[in-house]
Design a protein around this nucleic acid. Structure first.
Lengths: 346, 346
DNA sequence: TTGTAAGCGTTATCAC
DNA sequence: GTGATAACGCTTACAA
């Protein structure tokens, strides 16, 4: 690393003023061909790169968008391998969209809800922040939103008065449940995620609606709860089989990861999927198509979540006073084998 | 978002100078208890957050570390789901380590090697850059390193004179091959990744070494090449079966993703794994334990790669003239079923 | 202990 | 077209 080059050096070298250098850097016109060429030559030769901090200060825009997740945490290794798929895909979508406008993406994770301080500080390093629901208390979120443009994503329902991006959790679960009903299964249970998950709640409600619409009594509480991990799904099944002789004919499970755990636990206790128990998941993680049996699940467009967050953020940054926007992305039932359907993709 | 608050407002509000505010913000001493308290009160009440750009400019340190990958790209959806696991885990490790010192992590992806411009510009927004091998041409890498501290990761061998982090690709593949040899398989083929992958080459060499050590003729070229995707593995097998009647007794495959594709293709053509063909992979992605049969593979400590990159970067930022460091992380053979071993994890 | 003032490297507004 | 020069918001000697 050689000495940090500044616009002054470049200007001197090219025999022009710093203003001209700046103009060339931005591709602005109002610069003679000769000047432009000279400056460009020096830049190319010296490898000059603007100082982002200085530019950010002058422009009041850093060209950085922040994403806050609550699952990039220090959980036990492996346990969250699938969960992490979520954030990664969202980030990819976000990065791609940000890249198009020359912005970069900053990542942050909250482990506990008590990390206010750190997240608040993040606001300093970005032009806007996309925050995953649940990674910050509503109060902190509001506070944050007062400092910097914020969009919330992965919320069960539209939060406060923030821009937001979410998927059709309700509809997705409803569709999955309906599919199970069409199989003719009369007894369908739900294994939920943690009660604090708004998305999980929305899925449960979708399930209830499908049942109600079909003329069944929809339970007011899920059969069991897990923590969205494989172990959680396993435990839920174990617990369930402690409370009742045998599993219901079908199980709608809050996410794929738990569904995988549940299928394993079910199998270990002699219950075949889908012959004894039909199962659906939610998310459509890569694993879903590979487990035995392949998992029927609800696909959500993760990359698009990231893209939309970026889009909303960029818009909000330009127009502080824009009207609040809530984007709802569609989900889609992916039929494989765990529901009892014959064919399906591998 | 209310009007951007500056240190001046805070100072005025608290009835002190901006210097005192700054001192309090940094927890420096040499501030009377009373002053500190007054400032803190104002900060708390107003939700003041320093302007990162201004701070960065003044301190010549942004508190941001950048990571450049070459796989967060626009590949066809799903195709790279497993590959992306790599970057995500590395990022997690990096984020965790950076968080400890109050830094944040910036993400960038290069799709083609032609994105010099964009990556060079990244240097403006960070204090240091960890660059995945292959995402930048050596020339650009060198150029970049002249502007900002750089560490290279995922390289097959220590690159130029940069700090670097890599895993024991050679040893890992060698161990996997040796394991296959211990099974008594005499004919062992290798399906490689793209020839430009330095890690892939190192793995191939490890395989060759194991063979040579066992007294076999090590081939100078892999049986086939794939692009590290599932499809790639599938194609490789198809191609292989076009060139030879039947597969070799065992196959060392360049990564898990291709191994999964290969197993599928093998099965579809009537060759059972591990009974007809034994298979090993590399990476130990979450999928590895779930496919049928569970994949015997070489585990690499992804999070630690990220952690070490961060560590090296931070050190290099402090000590521009520190001696070059190359970190090599161990890999570990994870024995499951695809190699022909009976037990193994699910 | 506290405040003043000089950078930090850009951008952007004006005169020229 | 081009070049001074005033912000931008913060840190940090240095002086008081």
């Amino acid at each position: 690393v050689s000495k940090r080059l500044t616009i002054y050096e470049v200007a001197r070298e090219a025999g022009v003023s710093i203003a001209s250098v700046s103009r060339v850097m931005h591709g602005r016109d109002g610069v003679s061909g000769e000047t432009r060429e000279r400056v460009e030559r020096v830049i190319e030769r010296s490898g000059y790169v603007v100082n982002g901090a200085a530019r950010g200060l002058a422009q009041r825009r850093l060209g950085v968008l922040g994403f806050v997740f609550c699952d990039l945490d220090e959980a036990e290794p492996g346990a969250d391998a699938v969960t992490s798929f979520y954030s990664h895909e969202v980030v990819r979508g976000a990065e791609r969209a940000a890249r198009r406008v020359g912005d970069a993406v900053l990542l942050a994770a909250t482990h506990s809800l008590s990390e206010r301080r750190r997240v608040l500080a993040l606001a300093a390093k970005v032009d806007g922040l996309a925050v995953m629901a649940g990674s910050l208390s509503p109060a902190d979120l509001e506070r944050l939103a007062d400092r910097v443009p914020v969009v919330s994503f992965a919320a069960g329902r539209p939060p406060g008065d923030l821009d937001s991006v979410r998927v059709e959790n309700f509809e997705g679960a409803r569709t999955a449940t309906r599919h199970l009903l069409e199989h003719g299964y009369a007894e369908i249970g739900f294994i939920a995620g943690p009660s604090r998950s708004a998305e999980g709640r929305a899925r449960f409600n979708g399930y209830r609606r499908a049942l109600a619409d079909a003329g069944f009594d929809a339970p007011t509480a899920p059969l069991e709860r897990g923590d969205f991990t494989e172990n959680g799904g396993e435990h839920a099944v174990v617990q369930m089989l402690r409370e009742r002789e045998r599993p219901p004919r079908a199980l709608v499970i809050g996410n794929d990861q738990m569904a995988v755990g549940a299928i394993g636990a079910l199998g270990a206790r002699g219950f075949g999927v889908p012959d004894d128990v039909a199962v659906t998941g939610f998310d459509d993680v890569p694993l879903a198509g590979h487990v035995q049996p392949a998992l029927t699940t609800v696909h959500q467009p993760l990359r698009r979540i990231g893209e939309e967050c970026t889009r909303l953020l960029l818009h909000r940054i330009e127009h502080t006073d824009a009207v609040r926007t809530a984007v709802v992305l569609p989900t889609e039932l992916v039929v494989r084998r765990s529901c009892g359907c014959g064919g399906g993709a591998a």
